[in-house]
Write a protein that binds this DNA or RNA. Structure first.
Lengths: 163, 163
DNA sequence: GCCAGATCGTTATTGACAATAGCATTCCTG
DNA sequence: CAGGAATGCTATTGTCAATAACGATCTGGC
């Protein structure tokens, strides 16, 4: 019945990603973190100079979308914003943030192990390389029909998340 | 830099899926279709008895979310709703819908070929099997804390889309 | 024939994530 | 110092998904 869908790489990819995301979101929910939030915690651990813009660039989260995300983390007492200069501010983990990061790390690591365990050994090692081949190469959006894009990096469409 | 992310299966999966989705959405956008809409067109082609509920079950789209989706398709003149009985209605393609489905099919097929072409031959054949292993088995949500789930299938979290 | 339970389509609301446009401030460089 | 770039932010919109609730209809058991 759904075989028409099952062998379609695009559909399988979408669906697997969704199932994965839902499950990971559920698990991270137990420590009151969203996926994107956990990604940030994992990323800035050990750093004291990561700016919001930089985090956004790495995780492919728009500058604008970083704001409410960081606000939530700050309100939860997990991160702290410390001015670097008048314009930038470093985002760094608080004590509570480090503890939470630890939990998040345990959850995502365990999750990924569960994930890989579901895949037959013969296929297992090929998954990540295959996926990596798919993500980076935005296959030439020709023009975007903008014409200028003077400032603002003209990045692509992806996003963030740990997992 | 992003190597910390790149080797994480969950992150790679999420990111690959997003890049893929964005690209497919862009291509389908040229014929004024969203991914979910194209999925429906591809699914109901050749059928005259597919109900909204059934489509939703197959594509894992909630009944409630089928409504606006089908409304858009109907307003675009691509589908037609025909009463089966007082309660159910068949969703079937109009002439324009069949034509559009054809275009959508060409686009998604070409897209998937491009997708696979990006993957090194050695990995290529393992992707779909690996992904399929990930999606179906919702790894026991223990309980869902509902207690009963008498009616309504207790499906999981995925969704739809061709691609 | 009637009633209970299931199913169908629908409305409405909420959530997560993303994209865009625009703005004030600050930094950097010539 | 001036102009361009970067930073952080507000506000809005869009896509997809989940939930709750409702009226209506179908179905099976009696």
């Amino acid at each position: 019945m759904t075989d028409i869908l099952r062998h379609r790489p695009g559909y399988a990819l979408r669906r697997a990603a969704n199932a994965m995301m839902a499950e990971l979101a559920r698990r991270l929910g137990t420590i009151d973190l969203r996926i994107a939030e956990a990604s940030v915690l994992l990323l800035i651990d050990g750093r004291t100079d990561a700016t919001a813009s930089e985090i956004g660039r790495i995780l492919d989260i728009q500058r604008a979308n970083m704001v409410p995300l960081l606000n939530r983390l700050e309100e939860a007492g997990l991160i702290e914003r410390r001015p670097i200069d008048g314009k930038s501010q470093a985002v760094l983990l608080t004590g509570a943030g480090r503890a939470r990061r630890h939990e998040a790390d345990a959850i995502t690591t365990a999750f990924e192990e569960d994930l890989m365990a579901r895949i037959a050994p013969g296929h297992r090692d090929h998954l990540v390389p295959a996926l990596d081949a798919l993500w980076g190469e935005a296959p030439q959006h020709e023009d975007h029909s903008h014409g200028d894009h003077s400032h603002e990096d003209n990045s692509h469409e992806d996003n963030s998340h740990a997992g």
